[in-house]
Nucleic acid binder design. Structure first.
Lengths: 159, 159
DNA sequence: GATGAAACACACATATA
DNA sequence: TATATGTGTGTTTCATC
């Protein structure tokens, strides 16, 4: 699981799989100019070393009725280990929270929340977040428009 | 491309493909208790209607040397159509910005930025963001720890 | 269910460093 | 020497009709 050096071919493989996660090994090999077996070996190595952490389907939230997204800034009252542990474990249990980061600056945590509508968000806020112990302050901003949603990471600056 | 009704089986298909994007149709069919052909028909319909927008590989940023993430709040000086259009088109060109949302509240835009290190971030800030016309204020918070990163959307509350 | 195409697991010779 | 590649073979599994 230690860090392997990645050459341009590895980066090309990652870029292609990031763009099209269900590419067949044969097509992938052709695009990165490798034989299928050599290509498969590299992909398996990337998977084993954890560089390739998995694959996922991209789903349109609006088409599912998940029409409201919000970013919620959370401050904790204290930062004892147990307060933090309790909060983060709850965050991990709340399905509506698709991402949560601890940040520098005045906001302690930034939560990315995906819900159906304002009523659903209100329930999440009142029943879960504001009800959680140790939460000192909460500040919500709703997503008006998603200007950009890249498919994965910027690989252009590497190699 | 109009909105199709989704039953529990469709949601189960989406959940499985979100969890494991390269599931074979045979395995997927077994997990959602369908015949392979019926399952394939549903998946193709979900793809055609845009509910399934694509597939992607999940890559570990740290293992690639992308060790620093930041959330950058941006305020524009004005909100003329052309100022906004210029800004959003630039955001879409900057590879380091993996996501950008227009938000309610005091911050106009929230940018999720992924870079190699502080020096790379500094270059992004000075050369690109602060250099962009119409940007009135910028406020950066760095990611100390990613507490949660869900694989996709919360599907449990639907159906 | 049938069939044509992949994936996958080997072996081995070659090339590159 | 050690590592990665290309080719080739065969078997298994899959997508698709």
């Amino acid at each position: 699981m230690d860090s392997p050096r990645l050459d341009r071919t590895d980066l090309a493989i990652l870029a292609e799989l990031q763009r099209e996660g269900r590419l067949s090994n044969a097509d992938l090999a052709e695009r990165v100019k490798l034989s299928p077996s050599a290509c498969l070996r590299r992909v398996q190595r990337l998977e084993q070393t954890g560089v390739l952490a998995g694959y996922t389907a991209l789903i349109d939230p609006a088409k599912l009725g998940l029409g409201l997204q919000a970013f919620v800034r959370v401050q904790l009252a204290r930062h004892d280990a147990d307060v933090v542990a309790t909060f983060t474990s709850r965050v991990n249990r709340w399905d509506e929270v698709v991402a949560c980061h601890a940040l520098t600056g005045e906001m302690d945590y930034l939560l990315h929340v995906v819900v159906q509508d304002l009523e659903h968000f209100s329930r999440f806020l009142l029943d879960h977040l504001l009800n959680a112990s140790g939460v000192a302050d909460v500040n919500s901003s709703f997503v008006l428009r998603t200007v950009k949603q890249a498919r994965g990471l910027p690989l252009g600056h590497l190699g």
